[in-house]
Simulated assay, not measured.
Amino acid sequence: MNTNIDPRLLLAPSLPQTADPAVKRKDPEKLRAACQDFEALFVHAMFKEMRKTIPQDGLLPRGMAEDSFQEMMDWELARQTSRSGSLGIAEALYRQLGGEEPPK
């Protein structure tokens, strides 16, 4: 049984439908940015779940400011990680969605 799902089928209903052929052209930079944003979202979720495994020592109570700072720092780290290409999720997704092959 083949359970592979084409990601383009998941995106098609959510994309705006226009009659202008210039709008329907592929924009590789926008596609790459969207793939990197998806990777950043995935990495942020991973960071969030990993932080849940760290026990709280209880010596100093955590406040809302520290939680907000931690959340913003995790988002920035996730963005930087996705932009660096070190995980390769964005690049794989980019190629899967029809982006050109990277130069060798």
Rank of each mutant, 00 (worst) to 15 (best):
M1I: 13
N2Y: 07
N4D: 11
I5H: 10
R8H: 08
R8S: 14
L9V: 12
L11Q: 04
L11R: 08
P13W: 13
S14N: 14
P16L: 13
Q17D: 08
Q17H: 08
T18I: 07
A19V: 03
A19I: 01
D20C: 07
K24M: 12
K30I: 09
K30P: 00
K30Q: 13
K30G: 11
K30S: 10
L31C: 03
L31E: 02
L31R: 03
C35Y: 02
C35S: 05
D37F: 12
D37V: 13
F38M: 12
F38T: 15
A40M: 08
F42P: 00
V43R: 11
V43F: 02
H44D: 12
A45E: 12
F47S: 02
E49N: 06
R51M: 07
P55D: 02
L59R: 14
L60Y: 09
R62V: 14
G63Q: 07
M64G: 01
D67C: 01
D67V: 05
Q70P: 00
M73E: 08
D74Q: 08
L77H: 07
A78K: 08
R79W: 08
Q80I: 12
Q80R: 15
Q80H: 14
Q80D: 11
Q80T: 13
T81S: 13
S82A: 15
S84F: 04
S86E: 09
L87T: 02
I89Y: 03
I89K: 03
E91W: 00
E91Y: 01
A92H: 00
L93Q: 02
Y94M: 02
Q96W: 00
